[in-house]
Design a protein around this nucleic acid. Structure first.
Lengths: 333, 333
DNA sequence: CTGAAAGCGCTTACAG
DNA sequence: CTGAAAGCGCTTACAG
């Protein structure tokens, strides 16, 4: 920390007022004469005084920091999501004079989060990838530290903000069903992630809404590696599906590769759609029909909810953001 | 900030000693009787007392935070690098009881960094993507805040830690030259990034070392979009090169696509190598010969250098980490 | 070896 | 409307 900066005491002395007065002029709290306040503000402006946030925080028992817990082991598909939502979070945070501390956590090691909590360096926490069983949640509850899940949790008592994967996936599948494609296959990702289960629900919703029966033989869940995805895709081709829905863009890119190798034309022979559009598929050929979500907005809203909650304001227990269905070359509708 | 935690005053009172004594027992600074110190330590352990880092920092004029400046607009290729180096940084930081604040900065907006500095929330800064002209550097110099560049800068006065791209690229190209391939093409990325210029130097080094003459017609620099890369690749094919070196994995993936479309066999007709191996090419077919760097180690070392510097220790002005040349199917040597 | 006191840079009852 | 004082939870000369 540099020490060449002026303090509230310097300002007070220069203006021949008390530190209390200066503090009040800045914070706007407490009664203060309009003239005095203008004088203080003018001096501050002219001399480029910035209050020390750390000291302010100590006095108020706040830190003006939030922690962002990110997986310490995420893979390529997730990265655009984290990158974008992080931007949104940081933007919203800094608009409220908050800063964001990075806390990488792996399933085997939540020590970083524990340290952060023990050190009292944050006022709240954003959890970012929702696992079906998440040990961090227990930790935070125990410590009684405000937190919000960027994603979905089955525990209704947890504040959560998410993209509306369920409605989006339902809309995409409905569209497919109505376009008259007979057999629709699904290749799903790891069931450890809540988001994959949520997407699955959307898929089922669409079938129920259309009064169609799910064909379990065409649903390949838990494909968490390129190999599993490839063999699932091969099976669906074998089964003679007219379309394949991929649960995320990694699934989709592997599936496209398999089809290309088998010389199956997309969309003429098999149509393809993806439940999530990341930059990973940006250059795919053909361009893939998919759902797109505004991850930056998701981050911003998540942060906003957390900050409101910290400030004791009323917040929605669960917020959902919309989706966009973008039709591209990989489908015929 | 929760307020249910015990403070140094509580410990002092319980033990009937002064706060000074407790502080000394914890910090190890100042003379203190071994017996007393054990007593304090035991009590602390038993009652799970954790010093408040914020208060400690205020008293010492430190924050125990560092800022990590990351591009607010990075693309997919960069992500694995940031992801991995970030892990290394966070690890090293927390091993020293430091935390990492995230500061996204775009070329048009360095407000986040300014705010962070003005708010005195960090003891130092890590800059992470070195642009040829970097406005953040001026900002940091002016503020006299310790910082280190994770990457290379031409300004020798700046502390820097980088992968040895130059030596690595030289080794790869030398290997190619010695394997007897006649014409070797190069497709380079944006010259705005220092790293791309450094890689170019390694390329040139290899030619000089082999006493071969550079054929400028085969060097395609500044290909910063898929279109430019594709047209560069097409030109090199036209020029009848025996090999193409791609400056990064995005360049490489586009190049592979172009060759596949033109039905040019890799490596039989044209060999391919990449100067950087990210997960982006993990599933490429054929697997691509490339340089691999340990980005996590890079992050950790960068952080270590910064922390040492902050603590007033002597540090190397420039550290370089090694590389590994991984030969895969895309080349014939 | 130990402690009382001042201080880090703020905020906020309390009093006037 | 304004200020003196105590306090946030630590550290660190200084004195003993």
């Amino acid at each position: 920390m540099r020490s060449d900066k002026i303090t509230i005491a310097d300002v007070a002395e220069a203006l021949q007022v008390s530190k209390t007065t200066v503090s009040r002029a800045i914070s706007g709290k407490g009664r203060i004469g309009e003239e005095t306040r203008q004088k203080v503000l003018a001096y501050i402006e002219a001399n480029d005084y910035k209050p020390n946030v750390i000291a302010k925080g100590l006095a108020q028992k706040k830190t003006y920091n939030i922690a962002l817990v990110i997986p310490g082991d995420c893979n390529l598909v997730d990265m655009p999501f984290f990158q974008n939502s992080m931007q949104g979070i940081c933007e919203e945070a800094s608009a409220n004079d908050y800063d964001v501390m990075l806390v990488p956590v792996t399933s085997s090691n939540s020590g970083n989060l524990e340290r952060m909590i023990a050190n009292d360096k944050v006022d709240g926490v954003i959890l970012s990838r929702s696992l079906v069983k998440d040990t961090n949640i227990a930790l935070l509850k125990e410590e009684n530290l405000p937190f919000v899940m960027m994603g979905t949790s089955r525990d209704a008592k947890i504040l959560q903000v998410d993209n509306d994967h369920r409605a989006g996936c339902c809309a995409l599948v409905s569209r497919m069903l109505h376009s008259g494609i007979g057999r629709i296959g699904l290749i799903g990702g790891s069931k450890n992630y809540v988001v994959n289960r949520t997407r699955m629900q959307g898929y089922e919703d669409a079938f129920h809404a259309a009064c169609s029966k799910l064909d379990m033989a065409l649903i390949m869940e838990d494909c968490d590696s390129a190999d599993k995805i490839a063999s699932a895709a091969a099976k669906l081709v074998q089964a003679g599906v007219g379309a394949i829905i991929c649960m995320d863009d990694f699934v989709c890119s592997v599936t496209l590769q398999v089809l290309a190798e088998k010389k199956i034309a997309v969309p003429q022979q098999i149509q393809i759609a993806s439940f999530y559009d990341s930059t990973l598929l940006r250059n795919a050929k053909p361009a893939v029909t998919s759902l797109v979500f505004d991850d930056r907005a998701l981050g911003a809203l998540t942060c906003k909810v957390l900050l409101r909650y910290i400030q004791g304001e009323e917040v929605e227990p669960k917020s959902l953001l919309g989706y966009e269905l973008v039709i591209r070359e990989s489908t015929l509708f």
